[in-house]
Design a protein around this nucleic acid. Sequence first.
DNA 1: TATTTATGATAGCTTTACTATTATTTTAAA
DNA 2: TTTAAAATAATAGTAAAGCTATCATAAATA
Lengths: 237, 237
Amino acid sequence: MLPSPQAAKAESMKLQLQIQMNEALYLRNPESSELGKNILKHSVQLIHKAGFEAFTFKKLAEDIGTTEAGIYRYFENKHKLLVYLAAWYWGWVEYQISYQTNNIEDPAVKLKRVIQLLASAVEDDEETSYINESLLHQIIIAEGSKAYLTKLVEADNKQQFFKPYKELCAAIGNIILECNPKYKYPRSLASTIIEMAHFQTFFMHYLPSLTDFGKTKKQSEIIAYLNDLVFHSLKKK
Amino acid sequence: MLPSPQAAKAESMKLQLQIQMNEALYLRNPESSELGKNILKHSVQLIHKAGFEAFTFKKLAEDIGTTEAGIYRYFENKHKLLVYLAAWYWGWVEYQISYQTNNIEDPAVKLKRVIQLLASAVEDDEETSYINESLLHQIIIAEGSKAYLTKLVEADNKQQFFKPYKELCAAIGNIILECNPKYKYPRSLASTIIEMAHFQTFFMHYLPSLTDFGKTKKQSEIIAYLNDLVFHSLKKK
DNA sequence: TATTTATGATAGCTTTACTATTATTTTAAA
DNA sequence: TTTAAAATAATAGTAAAGCTATCATAAATA
């Protein structure tokens, strides 16, 4: 049995991905009922559409066709819901990485794959789950840092809410060390890759003069930049 | 006459730094009155203490000893105030950089100075202004990205609210090009340095396992990491 | 069939985010 | 110095956000 992200079979032979979630993130497990799944599904859509600041449980309830109080039975507040979605995302990304780099021997090729995964627009896995991964990816780019950039970081961190992010970071850090065991900053480089894959994407779209990709607006350029950055650092003398 | 950040003499021979602010950021210029200056001063303190989410104009008014309506005469809402503070900060940083790298010939030394400035805890300039630069620096680390991570980015960007950030980024990009005129990603590397100087600091304090500095928690290590990252990228073959 | 459990419907309360009105004070022009 | 203009304080009020509580009903389970 694998820890955290694990794949399990669902009815009708569909491969259903199950991300193991921290129970302290919710009041009632949203994956355990239709309403819960609807909360996840519609919150992704609504946050994507309205932005996290304008997103409210009332609007979400209207979208779903339930009541505000109904949502509150699942999540304490919208911050917890965002942290839940972020944790789900990090878990999902780590699964994608371990899955997609499974057979790759060369750690440098592995790391390139990781960079590509992080900086690429995700296609929705359609049948995989009630969560639209493509929208979620975009949400995390624009709203993800708000999950930890609060006065609650320390408390949330004590409750392990950011464990999936840390595990992802550790996993990437290990690939980095495989590339160059003497490299001194594997974790920081990993978090830099992750954050910059997202921020450079955001900047390219909305504040292009903070990047060098404003003209073409191609994600392939962000990937090229990150590869350049990372492999110059890891090059052995 | 220099554009944007300029130094001007104040009464009693004190050197008073004047950051040129975008007029669309405020309703009434906060630098033009005592109340306005108090709004800036106390908002920095209150955001630092309570965090941006819990920060309200009502609490700010109580702190200052004025009324909520009084604050609204200066700023449309707390988002605009945050953008104002961020713009002030970027302007101030650009001034610091141009001032502190003024006599340096070697662009590599210049760039090192820039990295040091961005990743260092700022000491408050005390007499310089009603804004506590040290607190503001900490605010920007924790809240700064919220200035642009909103559904308003495009509108705000059209109104040039992020010009100081862009100018800073361009200035650092130019130093990068002085180091290596063939480097392909000067802007993106500049925004990476800026963001990572802040994020790695935040992570080191609150989510240390996302970094390699958790044990010592020394900013000098962040500086060393960023130097390593940047100069490996800029090294000429 | 009885009973637990989840949901829906409704109400209500506090805080946030904001606007408007009038009185009063300060500043600056005549 | 008077007078008018501008800024501030005091107060009130509204709509929405953020949350809790209650009770009836429907669905799942024992």
